[in-house]
């Protein structure tokens, strides 16, 4: 990029040629467009690594604590540890869809698609009024999603 520096007293300006300016504008516009589109793309395919929100106020402290523990394990790539912690939660009370949903997510990350599906189904069987969670589960259950390919390689 050709830059000509114009010195004016103590300031330095960088003057750009017109065609370069257009390129930069286009670059910025495309970035904006990508940022706008990204959430839609995530919704189409559950992004491995994104855990469903557990903001249900009815979650008892013991379950919240175990969820938080398993989230930490998950972030540290301790997937079997995360599953073991979530199983502890399910043994204490199997009626919380957030826990089953998380298990589905961990299985998905491990590439165990069938187990992910089954746990997502279990989550749906106990979910009450949480449509966001239901959608998240359905994303995993649906056989016509991009997950079909993963399944074949599994």
């Amino acid at each position: 990029m050709q830059v000509s520096r114009i010195h004016r007293s103590n300031q330095t300006f960088i003057q750009l040629r017109p065609h370069k300016l257009i390129l930069i504008l286009l670059l910025q516009l495309s970035t904006l467009w990508l940022t706008a589109c990204a959430p839609q793309m995530i919704a189409q395919q559950p992004e491995v690594g994104v855990l469903p929100v557990a903001d249900n106020p009815q979650l008892p402290d013991v379950i919240k604590s175990l969820i938080s523990q398993s989230d930490k394990q998950y972030i540290n790539n301790d997937f079997t540890g995360a599953l073991a912690t979530l199983e502890r939660a399910v043994r204490i009370n199997p009626r919380y869809a957030e826990v089953w949903s998380r298990m589905a997510q961990v299985y998905l990350t491990l590439g165990k698609v069938e187990q992910a599906r089954q746990h997502a189904k279990r989550s749906n069987s106990v979910v009450k009024d949480n449509n966001k969670l239901r959608d998240f589960n359905n994303n995993i259950i649906r056989p016509d999603s991009n997950l079909n390919q993963k399944e074949q390689t599994h």
Partner: peptide, 11 residues
């Protein structure tokens, strides 16, 4: 850890 028997269900 040697082996874990995870909770596996099937609808």
């Amino acid at each position: 850890p040697l082996k874990r028997y995870p909770l596996e269900s099937e609808k």
